[in-house]
Design a protein around this nucleic acid. Structure first.
Lengths: 237, 237
DNA sequence: ACATATAGTGTCTAAAAGACACTATATGGT
DNA sequence: ACCATATAGTGTCTTTTAGACACTATATGT
């Protein structure tokens, strides 16, 4: 039998294959709070519960898994997130009552303001503060997945400035430090924090300033390449 | 319709779901070389080519994805690897000629000697030096997956001693340093290397020594917990 | 003018890696 | 027995970068 013949007679449905989905943990930082986007499930199973945005691969629309994630996130937020990273794939026989199920999870970050209007218009989507998640009963193992995403982002806060992508387009040094502190769960020496970021040259000075009370702060923008930079030395936990 | 009713009438095969598989990049260090385990494909597609050990979830045998990986690796090596870590999941429409395909990839490490006899007996499995991979035409995107695995292991060599799991049960400091140097592609100061490992107390002195030529070296064993330890500061690249 | 609030800097200390010369302990040849 | 050589392992100085914390800078409100 040649490969040609094999492929012609191949039938994907002949095998029992696990259910395959993607899920996205989309974080944003707003009002001094880390928030995660949740979606109310309109269909069975776990209908009515809140869960992560996600769904199934559309083999006609999606060329790869990232396409699927981006498509699902655009449905709920209207925009493509500036930071998207694969988190972990969870697959087992008990996470979904329909049977053996595999979900490829992603962590995404985006600006709250960039999609606030859109999210408000989508009736089944909302931002939830990460420290109020215990009040909700989430679908499937989504609470666990969010925890993994948060843990990963915490690690990133120690040796990258990836969390910058959870802020609005322009932001102050203090705001960035705040997200990091929220993630790490511990104050950071501002001098240390500024020094390493300045040395690595990861931000662009927009020239503008923002003043609320006190001395006005310079507004920065992340360099596009900043998402890939890793410091040689971690901040201490 | 209740969830009960929904689940009773649910039919997994009603949807077009991508093909789902797992692949394992199993590394080992032997004869001053990093080697990867390859398997000769006995079935279509890509029949006759060499590829990574892997395959499909068996919904009756496997409770989760790791079970699948461990089962597949045991088939080829006879043992369960002491280090196993999820690498990345690759899914797109073009990697497999059968159609949209998703593979959950793992990196594993194990001692060469621990499975050498078994591997030699399995006619379709062999260890290949990573720098001789270009001589083989590998199946699917497996060359790429190995590259991702190697890159991940290189990063780990900078802030963990995870590569220790690619050595035999007991090993010398120099041997461990050698794996790291191979992965990083650059010599390391032996003093720096020893110092950080001693400070973190990651190895057990077996009391035994090994002498070939020159002063005999102390044989160590990795502490089981050593796989989780991360240094605060990376070695420099 | 001055209190206060936040932004941002100067500078010393501490921790850990890099560099590299040194000592230690085996083998094998004469 | 002695010495060359090979590898293992140490002492110690330098360099880098984070932590600590007091200081200066620039705004607002009274």
């Amino acid at each position: 039998m040649t490969e040609q013949e094999y492929l012609q007679t191949y039938n994907a449905k002949a095998f029992d294959s696990p259910l395959l989905s993607i899920d996205a943990v989309l974080f944003s930082y707003h009002d001094k709070q880390l928030k995660v986007l949740l979606v109310k499930r309109s269909n069975h199973p776990e209908k009515g519960k809140w869960g992560l945005p996600g769904g199934f691969v559309d083999q006609t629309k999606d060329r790869n898994l990232e396409d699927t994630v981006v498509r699902k996130l655009r449905e709920k937020t209207g925009v493509t997130p500036p930071y998207l990273e694969q988190l972990e794939t969870i697959g087992n026989s008990h996470r979904d009552r329909r049977g053996w199920s595999v979900t490829v999870c992603y962590t995404a970050l985006m600006s709250y303001q960039k999609c606030q209007v859109y999210v408000d218009a989508v009736s089944d989507a909302q931002w939830v503060e990460t420290n109020k998640l215990t009040e909700l009963e989430l679908a499937f193992d989504h609470a666990h997945i969010i925890e993994i995403g948060r843990e990963r982002l915490k690690q990133k806060a120690l040796y990258t400035i990836v969390p910058a992508f959870s802020l609005s387009e322009t932001f102050t040094f203090s705001e960035l430090q705040h997200v990091h502190e929220t993630l790490i769960g511990k104050p950071i020496q501002k001098k240390s924090f500024r020094r390493r970021i300045e040395q690595a040259d990861l931000l662009i000075d927009t020239g503008e300033k923002r003043s609320e009370t006190g001395r006005p702060a310079i507004l920065y923008r992340v360099k596009p390449s900043a998402g890939n930079h890793t410091f040689l030395r971690n901040l201490e936990l």
